[in-house]
């Protein structure tokens, strides 16, 4: 198919190749996460277990109840986080925007912690769905502040700094709550508030997968107005984009996506900036119609890699996922900023 009579058509091949690479990477990381762990399981056993050949053994229990839900969660939530980052970067027209740097994850964390502690006092178990609702509410709280501030501040860097500050405030409030609610049950809460995929159950996965899939589809349907919005808000408006409706969709969708992550895995730092950026470099384009699925795939890969490192680097102790994403992701954020400064 002829894309442009003047173009050498190299773009399309590169995009197809990028998707193939990302899919392969995802498959490899999926298998690696399945194989590696504190209890060694041979590849042969894994195939047998996955095909349902052996049940009831210790290995099959580990694979079925611990590793598989964890891997699925890391992939789905990593994808959701990267997609949320891409939406925020497009909406704020700022390449270093993301749910973590804008304080949105921390807002979600604060609300989830609040609801968790309240439910502990009541002696009831929090449902997965309620956690997402609480996280979404918290996301919207931070997002509301950020949007108010973005109207006042045209400088992208100050917006990010405000986001980081909002993040600190929310984290401080969360810490206070966690400290005062010091109780045996809180240990779990403490782990979660640092960011972790340990303790993810099939029940969690059953809730997060449909939520993320629906959000993904709705995001994909916004690909066209997003592409116009990339050329400026006034331009988008002039070619017929309902900018108001579009903005609301962007805010709600990025909120749902990052809220699902925070509800189950706590705040995960920098992945939302780093993954879309790397993907953009691989694809060589920012067209939303490609970037939406590719960010999701890239985020899934990035998150699986980070979780693999988090689980294995200091065996038997597990590092929090945010520690790993920060070490790998923050330098990428710095690189983005330096590159932009250099280009100007």
């Amino acid at each position: 198919m002829r894309d442009c009579p003047f173009s050498k058509n190299s773009g399309k091949k590169r995009i197809i190749l990028s998707f193939v690479i990302l899919a392969l990477l995802l498959a490899i990381l999926f298998l690696a996460n399945l194989l590696v762990g504190s209890v060694g399981v041979s590849p042969y056993d894994i195939i047998r277990i996955l095909l349902g050949g052996t049940t009831g053994t210790k290995e099959s229990l580990i694979i079925h109840t611990i590793r598989l839900p964890r891997i699925l969660a890391a992939a789905v939530l990593g994808g959701a986080l990267a997609l949320s980052g891409f939406l925020l970067q497009t909406y704020f027209n700022n390449p270093i925007a993301g749910p973590f740097v804008l304080g949105i994850s921390s807002g979600a964390k604060m609300c989830v912690a609040m609801v968790m502690i309240l439910s502990l006092f009541q002696g009831m178990i929090l449902s997965s769905f309620l956690m997402i609702v609480a996280a979404f509410f918290g996301s919207m709280l931070s997002m509301g502040f950020i949007i108010l501030l973005s109207k006042k501040m045209k400088n992208g860097a100050t917006l990010i700094i405000c986001g980081v500050m909002i993040g600190y405030i929310c984290s401080a409030i969360t810490d206070i709550m966690v400290t005062f609610a010091n109780d045996a049950d809180i240990v779990n809460l403490h782990n979660w508030s640092k960011g972790s995929f340990s303790g993810i159950s099939w029940g969690n996965v059953q809730v997060m997968v449909p939520v993320v899939i629906i959000a993904f589809i709705l995001t994909f349907l916004q690909a066209k107005p997003m592409s116009a919005y990339q050329q400026g808000e006034s331009f988008a408006k002039s070619v017929g984009v309902d900018v108001r409706g579009f903005s609301i969709m962007m805010i709600i969708l990025s909120g749902i996506l990052s809220a699902s992550v925070t509800a189950f895995a706590g705040p995960i730092s920098f992945l939302g900036v780093a993954a879309p950026h790397l993907v953009k470099r691989i694809l060589g384009t920012v067209k939303p119609i490609y970037m939406i699925p590719a960010s999701f795939l890239g985020g899934a890969c990035f998150c699986l890699l980070c979780d693999l490192i988090a689980r294995t680097v200091f065996v038997p102790t597990e590092v929090s996922i945010s520690t790993v994403t920060a070490v790998l992701g923050a330098p990428i954020v710095i690189w983005v900023m330096v590159r932009r400064a250099y280009e100007k």
Binding site: Q231, G232, S234, T285
Partner: peptide, 24 residues
């Protein structure tokens, strides 16, 4: 409508920019 000083996303080719004129 053509306004000057619009902030554009990075990494768009000129062909990408022009083809957005077909939006409507």
């Amino acid at each position: 409508l053509l306004l000057t000083g619009q902030r554009m996303a990075e990494m768009m080719t000129c062909y990408d920019v022009v083809s957005m004129g077909r939006y409507p």
